[in-house]
Nucleic acid binder design. Structure first.
Length: 404
RNA sequence: GCGUCGGUGGCGGAGUGGUCAAUCGCACUUGACUGUAAAUCAAGCGCCUUCGGGCUUCGUUGGUUCGAAUCCAACCCGGCGCA
């Protein structure tokens, strides 16, 4: 029924750390897994072969970005996203829901009353609900209504519209092994009333996404669909969201939203408890080392995060002692190797410092690779500790050295 | 030697009587980055500060003026042209 299978290898009880394997049409990956992010069909600066060498098993790309450029039709004609980006391993696509948040939706209560009747909701070319005046006043590119989201392209300003059905259609064309239902990601700043409203909307969108997926039998044999749990920082809403999404028959689940650090643990336990144990859980967009431990502890199976590449590209390296900014003057004459990657043995911190200061492209690339390797090694060790029952010990050992 | 143009904060380079401690870029310092509008962005960058402000700066010295980086004179230094 599902295009993927999830095998749990180790699990000590509900809502606790577990280890397993996800099998997809493009190979399998071990869980807990860290998906490296390649938003536009490329992990910025890194070749797929290098990703493999760094320990990457699964990558995540973005529907919103690929829809805008080059367009899902091009990707499909080029053989689907795997062939297009020359990555033959497991692939995940995010639905574009997060862009609704990051491009500035959430102020759209005002526009929800302008919601279009379903019959009039057209494809991306019919952004009928979009109110450019409101958007420009708020400096925002996207507006939510009950049917979907209207937005202007950040690339060329053209107007588009996503609905759950449209997002699924695009993701079918992209062809990732796992894709997410279209959701609304809210800001933790929003009121409880709005969190509830957005959550209810996300649930309706989840039903519609699932229904749209069920109409495409071919896609169902090749792609799995994950539903997304929302609810902001309110444990009762999280539980309700997880219960409702959990009963819908998705192949797995994403836990979405943007929460403050201190809410993470509670949000996770509320969101995970009601979910069916046998299906994988993906914590969306999370990736600091402390968050990986926190997620795994509560039973998260998958993560994705831009942090290794973004931080690497901008000069911050993960190290056993914590993060360091390699551009700082103090590293200019540092003869220590900057990375544990065996193939990088001859590269010193001083050299990397120079590459960044001189604005040489090799700097961001080496740093990105290092950070990917660091996080992949970390998640592999975490997994090993779960399997051997020494998770708590490993966590303590890690943070004895790592400064948060 | 004569003529001419020019000497501004680490560098480049604005500014040609008050709104100038002096636009801007670079360099430098610090900070941020969690489903990537990010190889990006923000702040600082003469000295002191009880953060109100105070003090010393625009080659040097002297002058004009209520007031000068801006006008005048001499000198020092540099480019170019002519000898």
């Amino acid at each position: 029924m599902s295009a993927i299978t999830f095998t749990i290898e180790t699990e000590h009880g509900p809502g606790t750390a577990r280890a397993g394997v996800v099998h997809t049409p493009h190979g399998s990956f071990q869980t807990p897994a860290f998906c490296v992010v390649g938003t536009k069909g490329t992990v910025k600066g890194i070749e797929p072969a290098d990703l493999k060498a760094l320990g990457v098993e699964v990558a995540l790309a973005n529907t919103y970005h690929l829809f805008l450029q080059p367009g899902e039709r091009v990707v499909k004609e080029m053989g689907g996203l795997h062939d297009f980006m020359n990555w033959q391993g497991p692939l995940v696509t995010d639905s574009g829901g997060f862009q609704v948040f990051s491009l500035g939706a959430g102020f759209g209560k005002k526009v929800s009353k302008f919601a279009m009747p379903e019959a009039e909701v057209r494809e991306d070319t019919a952004p009928a609900v979009y109110d450019a005046e409101i958007a420009s006043v708020h400096g925002r590119l996207a507006q939510v209504d009950d049917e979907g989201v209207s937005f202007t392209s950040h690339i060329d300003g053209t107007l588009h519209r996503f609905t759950p059905e449209r997002s699924v259609e695009i993701q079918h064309k992209l062809g990732a092994d796992i894709f997410f239902a279209f959701d609304e990601c809210t800001s933790p700043e929003e009121t409880r009333d709005y969190q509830q409203e957005a959550m209810d909307r996300t649930h309706r969108w989840a039903e519609r996404s699932l229904a749209a997926h069920r109409t495409n039998l071919d896609a169902q044999t090749k792609q799995a669909i994950f539903g997304i749990v929302q609810g902001g920082r309110y444990p009762d809403l999280r539980r309700e969201s997880a219960r409702i999404i959990g009963e819908m028959g998705f192949d797995g689940f994403g836990i979405g939203g943007s929460f403050s650090k201190k809410d993470l643990g509670e949000a996770l336990s509320s969101a995970i408890a009601p979910l069916p144990r046998e299906k994988p859980r993906h914590l969306l967009g999370i990736g600091e080392p402390e968050d990986l431990f926190e997620g795994v502890q509560h039973g998260i199976d998958m993560f994705d995060c831009v942090l290794p590449t973004r931080l690497g590209r901008t000069g911050t390296l993960f190290t056993r002692g914590g993060k360091i900014d390699i551009r700082k003057a103090e590293y200019a004459n540092d003869t220590h190797p900057f990375s544990d990657i065996p193939a990088f043995e001859g590269y010193t911190r001083g050299y990397l410092n120079h590459l960044f200061r001189a604005n040489e492209m090799l700097g961001p690339l080496l740093a990105s690779m290092h950070n990917i390797y660091f996080i992949q090694s970390l998640i592999h060790r975490i997994r090993a500790s779960v399997v051997s029952g020494t998770f708590d010990d490993y966590r303590a050992e890690f943070f004895a050295a790592y400064a948060r």
